[in-house]
Computed example of a mutant assay.
Amino acid sequence: MPHAHPHDHAHHHHSHAHGPATPHPPQAAPWSILRMTVAGRLAAALAVSVALWAVVLVAMR
């Protein structure tokens, strides 16, 4: 069954600095949890936990 609405088959082209078969080059991360100390990781986990509990407690109000 044919349909009556027109199609626009325009393709968007983006310029890349690498070839289509190669992955994107790595970018330097401003921070990484893998480079944090154990104490830093624990502090970050505690901060995330406190924030999530705050959301839960506010939602239960």
Rank of each mutant, 00 (worst) to 15 (best):
V50N: 02
H3D: 12
M60V: 11
H12V: 12
L52A: 14
A54M: 14
R41P: 01
P30L: 08
I33C: 05
L57M: 13
A54T: 15
H24T: 09
H12E: 12
A44Y: 02
S15Q: 03
G40S: 11
A43H: 05
A39E: 09
P20G: 01
A47H: 04
A10F: 00
A17C: 09
V58W: 15
P26D: 14
I33D: 05
D8G: 02
V55S: 10
H9C: 07
P25C: 08
L52Q: 13
H24K: 10
M1H: 05
R41K: 15
A17T: 13
L57Y: 14
V48F: 13
A39F: 02
T22H: 03
T37I: 01
L52P: 00
P30H: 07
A47P: 00
P25R: 13
I33M: 07
W53I: 03
P23Q: 06
A43F: 03
S15C: 02
T22I: 02
A21D: 07
M60E: 11
V50P: 00
A17W: 04
A29C: 11
P23D: 08
I33L: 06
H3R: 12
M60S: 08
R61N: 13
P25K: 11
P30K: 05
H18K: 09
S49M: 06
T22S: 04
W31P: 01
V50G: 01
H5I: 04
A39W: 00
A43Q: 09
R61V: 15
A44K: 07
P20E: 01
G19T: 12
W31K: 04
T37C: 04
R41V: 02
A28D: 15
P2E: 06
S15D: 03
H5E: 05
A39T: 05
H14C: 13
I33R: 10
A59S: 15
A29Y: 13
P25L: 14
H14E: 15
D8S: 10
P23Y: 06
H13F: 13
A59E: 14
S49H: 08
V38H: 12
T22R: 03
V56G: 08
